[in-house]
Write a protein that binds this DNA or RNA. Structure first.
Length: 569
RNA sequence: UGUCCUGUGGUGUAACUGGCAACACGUCUGAUUCUGGAUCAGAAGAGUCCAGGUUCGACCCCUGGCAGGACAACCA
């Protein structure tokens, strides 16, 4: 992939109003603040899988760079070896690529800068702006004060430069056990901003790092690594989410004291979605407790989950574009995400027929043993996608809900005496309803109008309803996984006292059932997308094997009948 | 009972250096249609958190409230 492709991935649009970050960037270009350069970065911590919230950030960072002919680095913020793993690095790279962006070889790690960071720390010590502190974790907590009360100076704050230098080197050399000492910045224990109260720069961690192995037993904290990494890479606009806003004074303090190149940090609000939890911790617990089947469960808001669900990169990028960038908290309705997939899939999916809750239909005026092939459009939206043949026979399956014995007013589907169109086939009238001993409808006896073959009657007669069907003899069975929202509440956190968000789990977020589909689909491959007409968009799951197909429902079609029928009740 | 940030239709975003609010989704009509899908046309819906002030004029500036969020991890 190339810069050009990054640009394509941003879906262009010139005359749309700028978001506030682009306004800043354009001002900076105009004033030559960074010599006209634009250089961003996407800085994930490799301790989990990327989710749709990260997608927003990825689109913003890579998109901004592409829009202004700049660059965007991929940088792993890997300063905590106790949490980070190579497995996550790989998945993150895969997901960013899949979304359609490329870092053009600029794959960096905060750990690339451990030596430089160490020297930065030494520099601060020499300037008497950092000191080694022996306070325990608990002590440090009390010395820090609270949000409403100032803290007080550590007794170790006045150590000499020489002693600090020596101690810090010993820390590096492994002379102390985990937690024995830390290196802190010397700022102001009375500062309103808690982060400025002598924050920790380095802690002792005798843990192997996924990249540097056992080279280090001290590791820098986020605050002491992030800004300097940005500086080293020549980042111009360091775009991050709002929770880092209070870190900005510290970010700037380090840059200033270290006397190094200063990028500009800009914060925007993170994405929240209705019916969705987004925190890594909660997503992890869903995985760990087996509530979902892994990080890529199609109900997860992870990129890999959405991918498996059948979402396209284009739809996600488009979603990111639509939700905008601002600084106020946003809670986006998931239905907007769903709109975005439908919009994209509508253009590209082939249409096929599948019956999910079969009701047998026998066509009494169609000769026994006879069958024929009828031509169907693969995509009425796009004729270039061609046609296919669909087998027809005396016995069919239709959808149970397409028949009602006592239809309400605006029901356009099949009912006793009513006529509907079998898509791409014939007009069909229902003459007899067969029930079992419980009164349940188990079969319909119908007749077709042979003259209406193909779907239109030469006498110009109209039917209001068109239903899908499948030939009982030719249909193949497949597994359908009907996914729905994972939570029943718009805000899953709204669980009352003493309860956690899992009480709001939707028991019907996954319904597995058999479906009957056109034989045309026999050789369809995993990840292929399609629309089962009148039912929804689906994609073939990775679990699918020839002869045992598995279809994931990405999203249902918009259903205005559901709305009408719902109102009548 | 501290500091900082934010506050525009149901949701999200916009309104150039002040000139009475736009777009998208959603909602509702109607047209059209071999998917109750898609498409097309149209409508309703906020007077910009509140109260003052500056101004000929304020969503935009000032003051004071109110509401929401962030911040007290050797996490990022």
């Amino acid at each position: 992939m190339t810069a050009e492709e990054n640009k394509n991935a941003t879906n262009g649009e010139e005359n749309k109003p700028l978001n506030f970050i682009h306004t800043i960037v354009e001002d900076d270009i105009r004033t030559q603040k960074f010599g006209g350069r634009v250089h961003t970065r996407f800085p994930p911590e490799p301790n989990g899988y990327l989710h749709i919230g990260h997608a927003k950030s990825i689109c913003l960072n890579f998109g901004t760079a592409a829009k202004y002919n700049g660059m965007c680095n991929l940088r792993f913020d890997d300063t905590n070896p106790t949490k980070e793993e190579t497995e996550y690095v790989d998945s993150i790279k895969e997901d960013v690529h899949w979304l359609g962006f490329d870092w053009e070889g600029r794959e960096f790690y905060a750990s690339d800068y451990f030596d430089a960071l160490y020297e930065f720390a030494v520099k601060l010590i020499k300037k008497s702006k950092a000191y080694v502190c022996d306070l325990t974790q608990e002590e440090m907590g009390t010395y820090r004060g609270t949000v409403t009360q100032p803290g007080k100076d550590s007794p170790f704050r006045t150590r000499s430069v020489e002693e600090n230098l020596q101690l810090f080197e010993q820390m590096r050399n492994g002379a102390f056990h985990d937690g024995a000492r830390v290196l802190r910045a010397k700022i102001d224990m009375g500062h309103n901003n808690m982060l400025m109260r002598d924050p920790i720069l380095y802690r002792i961690l005798h843990t192997d790092h996924h990249r540097t192995g056992d080279k280090w037993c001290i590791y820098p904290m986020y605050d002491f690594a992030h800004g300097q990494s940005d500086s080293i890479e020549g980042i111009t606009h360091s775009i991050c989410t709002l929770e880092f806003e209070v870190h900005r004074p510290l970010y700037e303090w380090f840059i200033k004291e270290l006397e190094i190149y200063a990028p500009q940090q800009i914060e925007f609000s993170r994405l929240n979605l209705t019916y969705t939890v987004m925190s890594k911790r909660k997503l992890l617990s869903l995985v760990k407790e087996g509530i979902v089947n892994g990080w890529d469960d199609p109900r997860m808001p992870t990129i890999c989950g959405l991918r498996r669900r059948g979402y396209t990169p284009e739809s996600i990028r488009n979603f990111a574009e639509k939700i905008g960038i601002a600084r106020r908290d946003q809670l986006i309705d998931v239905s907007l995400l769903e709109f975005c997939v439908r919009e994209d899939l509508n253009k590209r999916s082939i249409r096929v027929m599948g019956v999910f809750n079969p009701l047998k239909v026998t066509i009494t005026n169609y000769p026994e043993g006879q069958e024929e092939l009828l031509e169907a459009l693969n995509n009425p939206e796009d004729e270039s996608m061609g046609t296919r043949k669909v087998p027809f026979g005396r016995e069919l399956y239709i959808e149970q809900e397409d028949f009602m014995e006592e239809p309400p007013k605006k029901f356009f589907r099949l009912a006793p005496g009513a006529e509907v169109r079998l898509r791409y086939a014939y007009f069909m009238k229902c003459n007899e309803v067969v029930k079992d001993s419980n009164g349940k409808v188990i079969e319909l006896k119908c007749t077709i109008d042979p003259a209406s073959k193909g779907g239109n009657s030469p006498d110009g007669r109209k039917v209001k309803g068109t239903i899908h069907w499948v030939s009982a003899k030719h249909a193949i069975q497949a597994q359908a996984r009907l996914y729905d929202r994972l939570f029943i509440k718009e805000d899953p956190e709204d669980a009352g006292e003493e309860c956690d968000f899992k009480v709001n789990l939707n028991p019907e977020s996954l319904i597995e059932q058999v479906c009957y589909i056109e034989p045309y689909l026999k050789d369809i491959k995993p990840m292929e997308k399609l629309q089962f007409e009148r039912v929804g968009y689906f994609c073939v799951d990775n679990d699918s094997v020839p002869g045992k197909l598995v279809f994931n429902r990405t999203v249902t079609l918009k259903d205005s009948w559901a709305k009408i029928s719902g109102k009548n009740e």
